[in-house]
Amino acid sequence: MKLSNKQATLLVLALLIAITPFFFPSSYYYRVGSLIFVNGIAVTGMVILIGYAGQISLGHAGFAGIGAYTCALAPVHLGLHPGLALVLGAVISAAMAWLIGRPILRLKGYYLGVATLGFGILVSMVLANERDITRGPDGIEVPDLGLRGLLKDMGLNLNNSEFWYGFTGLALLLGAWLALNLFNSPTGRALRALHGSEIAARTVGVDVARLKLQAFVISAVYASVSGSLLALQNKFITPDVAGYMHSIEMVTMAVLGGAGSVLGAIFGAGILTMLPQVLTVFAEYEQLMLGLVMMLVMIFMREGLLPSVLRLIRGRGE
């Protein structure tokens, strides 16, 4: 039986998530793994926005910030369970994306870039400056999700990093499944159509403004959930989660790996998340290396790392 692209992608992801722990030299790697998964979720949202719909955002970390701080604040101020706070964060992010997306998405290219960038910076500024609520640039504690204790009562005893590895891994699988469903659905096709030619998409009846907005809102929810999971996992969060650099990281991970495919983008998230871990010995060289990788991949592998590598392998095979 021939696997569809969707089944193959999900299978590869699931196997990677399940098997790699057997090769972890220490429990520290569970943490690196779950960081990759959390970034992978945000980046899967970027695939829908950039790869499917062809729109750009340099401000999606703003939504990650909303998700993260909702998990920090809603349990304290509203008495909400942290898990529900994650949902609330996603709802707020979606509403926010819907509100600002309507005017912003009329813009194209660099203009859209600077408008979204402005939004992201505004969010991070509010988080850093409203000390009475957010406690400012030094960050704030985030309550425990409580799910690990629940699992323990049910007889599944995991240590903290194992739990978060598994939990974020499952969340990533879910996110990837949704994104892959979308790709081949009528909506996904319309998104890719407007990416290919906006004018032709309009003449076949695609309501371009509405479709772009949908992609923007969906990707904002992914970013928000990613931010929430990061906050819950670390039990602490700073305004950097909404910062300019984090927005750039999201876009870079997606495009570096290959924004056209979910697997490629998650691959990009893996590479960029591991880069600092690999370079800890050469901490001073981290920025230099990051910048170099960004430039080299974009110049020499325009489709992104994974598609280019796959093409190379196939080329050899023939």
Binding site: R189, A193, V206, Q214
Partner: peptide, 28 residues
């Protein structure tokens, strides 16, 4: 004005957008 990155069949299916599009959640 062809959707270059899509297959030939997908290009033709795109013409059915108004007939095939439904609720976003159903697609997700």
């Amino acid at each position: 004005q062809i959707f270059q990155q899509m297959t030939v069949l997908e290009n033709a299916i795109a013409g059915y957008h108004l007939q095939e599009s439904g609720h976003l959640l159903a697609d997700l």
